[in-house]
């Protein structure tokens, strides 16, 4: 660990910064060796996922392992996709869950964050601290009583909950503490004069928010939308609890179903290329989104940690 530090500063007195002593060269080389080793180990599982998705069975199980698929079996992706209702699962993931949830979360969290930052009213900050504190309540604790709430609502004839995505989508209308916090921090960075000018012109609070502030909030809203979309796209536990029909499965549960299917007919090992192919498809949107919006991501993440 001290390796990293010793390399940025020459050990002898620090006067000859920039001069390349033998010791300094060894230090820098060692540092790169460690970083490249770490990066290789971190990247390997994902590399292995993609490369195994392109192999046929003999290539997957050869000893010693085959590092790169040769030849690459691109039709694995099509065959794996057709082995179950993956198009339907993807449709469920996106249109029944991720998109409505993300839309609701962005709208509701923006409104609440506005109320917590751009309007001054007594008790505001106390309530905001309460809002932050709820982030410390683990989902595992409310998971069971929440299920009871939805079950009882359904039994009382108040809406359909169990077996639908409603328990995962409707609460998004009420804002998410984490994003409220994040958007509030962004709102606070916008100059107060903007709102004052709009108010003098007779704009309502909502008008000020939509016409004056929202255009300036695009990066922050992108962070919220991206994080929430990724979270719901990847969510496993929510659908595991509430979705009980195959036709309603999201992609994540569909992958687990493929695995269970393969092992139930006794060829669990042979399922791996297909499993890797479908997993690659499920991970691809996340990785693509990340590479296109890397700055947005890194800044969003950094902000949540730093101001916390």
């Amino acid at each position: 660990m001290s390796t990293a530090e010793t390399t940025i500063t020459p050990t002898s007195r620090g006067r000859e910064t920039g001069s390349w002593t033998a010791r300094r060269i060894t230090g820098v080389a060692l540092k790169y060796l460690i970083i490249i080793f770490l990066a290789a180990s971190y990247a390997f599982p994902l590399y292995w996922m993609v490369s195994s998705a392109l192999k046929d069975d003999p290539q997957v199980y050869r000893i010693p392992p085959v590092l790169a698929p040769n030849p690459a079996h691109w039709n694995n992706f099509i065959d794996a996709w057709r082995s179950d209702e993956f198009t339907l699962y993807t449709f469920n993931s996106v249109f029944r869950y991720a998109l409505p949830n993300t839309l609701f979360t962005v709208i509701s969290s923006t409104l609440v964050a506005y109320g917590f930052s751009r309007i001054k009213w007594p008790g505001r900050d106390k309530l905001f601290y309460l809002c932050i504190a709820t982030m410390l309540i683990p989902y595992t604790v409310t998971m069971v009583p929440l299920f009871i709430v939805f079950k009882r609502l359904q039994d009382a004839g108040l809406g359909r909950w169990i077996g639908t995505y409603n328990p995962m989508v409707v609460p998004a209308l009420f804002g998410n503490a984490f994003y409220i916090f994040l958007l509030r921090q962004f709102f606070l960075t916008l100059p107060e004069e903007l709102s004052d000018a709009a108010r003098v012109d007779g704009a309502s609070e909502l008008g000020t928010l939509v016409r004056i502030l929202l255009p300036l909030m695009k990066p922050a809203l992108a962070v919220v939308a991206l994080f929430q979309f990724m979270g719901t796209w990847a969510d496993y536990l929510g659908p595991l609890i509430y979705i009980n029909k195959y036709t309603m499965y999201p992609l994540a549960l569909g992958i687990q179903k493929l695995r269970a299917m393969m092992s139930s007919v006794g060829n669990a090992p042979l399922a791996y290329p297909y499993l890797m192919a479908v997993s690659t498809v499920a991970a691809a949107p996340i990785i693509i989104i990340f590479f296109f919006a890397q700055r947005t991501f890194i800044e969003g993440i950094a902000l949540t940690g730093l101001k916390g």
Binding site: W48, A282, A283, I286
Partner: peptide
């Protein structure tokens, strides 16, 4: 490097689970 270290933490858990299982 930062991207390489970050991506494993955002891909869906089901994908990580399947890869590590393998």
């Amino acid at each position: 490097f930062r991207a390489i270290f970050y991506v494993p933490s955002i891909i869906p858990a089901i994908c990580s689970a399947m890869v590590w299982l393998f």
